[in-house]
Amino acid sequence: MPTDMLDRWREQDWQLIPPTRLSASENLALDEVLTGRVGRGERKPTIRFWQWAGPAVILGRFQSVQNEIDADAARRNGIEIVRRITGGGTILAQPDDVIMYSIYVPDSFVRGLSFADSYREFDHWVIDALGELGVNAWYEGLNDITSEGGKIGGAAQARRNGAVLHHAAVAYRMDHELMGQVLRIGQEKLSDKGIRSADRRVGPLRQQIDLEREEITQHFIDFFRRQFGLTDDTITPDEQQEMQRLATEKFQTRDWVYFLP
């Protein structure tokens, strides 16, 4: 691990895009747009917190729809099915149940880091921020954030056009019944985890601390600002336009969502 990582965090002129209510496909499109802009030097390194207009199930880049979800059950429950540009596993995102953030930074930031190390590095501050709230959390495997109370989150990365996109989802609350209906979690996936029940793998924050979701999000923002500096920013009209075009022309298309049926 390079010894100057803390310097690298502090050297960036970080911009904050606060939670902005968008549809699932807009959220995913915005990740692609902002990654491209940071890579081309048109936008400074940025951290964005997500907000959802409605419930969605988000597949990883390489997951098959049928293997991961019961599409009929998703439809019955009014859940949009979308696919993101990063690898990793499926997330059931209900607007009030999850805290998600994306970090966009030029790839010089991860110079000298292995893929595995870069995952840990990007979420290190969140682990520390959770610690301040009394949640003892740590990184497990390649991309999981876990705690004494169970798994609380996961991260994924894409690298393109000279930039890294690192996004992570932290579970605030979990609707186990809905998850059971919509997500298919096979036994093989649990084979090396030593546990049988999918429910027991998770420990959403609401079960662990008495804070509202918005309060935790605000703590994350404050913590990041305190550690590395942070300038308030917004999505520009230009970015918004590109996001909407990409949401329609790519992320909402059947070709993209059912790329692996």
Partner: peptide, 25 residues
């Protein structure tokens, strides 16, 4: 995850999927 069909002694319609990471995609 691998989904495939067998056509005589050959594999057909092979689809690899999963929650792995692959660059470039």
């Amino acid at each position: 995850v691998v989904d495939l069909e067998r056509d005589g002694d050959r594999l057909r319609n092979v689809q690899i999927s999963g929650d792995f990471f692959l660059y470039p995609d």
